[in-house]
Amino acid sequence: MTAPPGPQKTLATFHVNGESHEVAFVPHKTLLEVLREEMNLTGTKHGCELGECGACTVQVDGTPVLSCLVLAVDVVGKQVRTVEGLAKGPELTELQHAFADMGAAQCGYCTPGILMTADALLAQNTKPTRDEIKECLAGNLCRCTGYIKIFEAVELAAARCRGEKAEPRKESIHGS
């Protein structure tokens, strides 16, 4: 049996991490699928593909969005940024350094989505409170860390971005 004629592929140019990608794709594909399967940007993860877990978060024009709920055709002409676009060459951002220092990435699977959400927060708010960080990351699930090290890493990164010589609190590293 021949497959029923599927929708025709469409050709579009995406702007991802400052580069242009010309991609032929079926128009019902989500941004998540096009990033991972057509552009090999596998840093963006999937945990549910229903908008429940936040693992697939990327930035579109600086705003965090769930790439599993966005059709790829909807971001044509917009600036998309994925986790691969955070570091400048080999130089990690303060946020990435802070996550590495605090052990905020355990299995690391939720980390790209959390980084993209937190990066957008720090771009708007250089001194977020713990409650603001919690609120901002409430849509990103993590099963490993209990979130504490993630919140602390965002705070550490924020302080370092402000030019402070911040180090992790002793109780965060060695316990009380």
Partner: peptide, 11 residues
Amino acid sequence: RKVDARGKVSG
């Protein structure tokens, strides 16, 4: 840091 920390924070 963990040996895999860099890979995990860079995707």
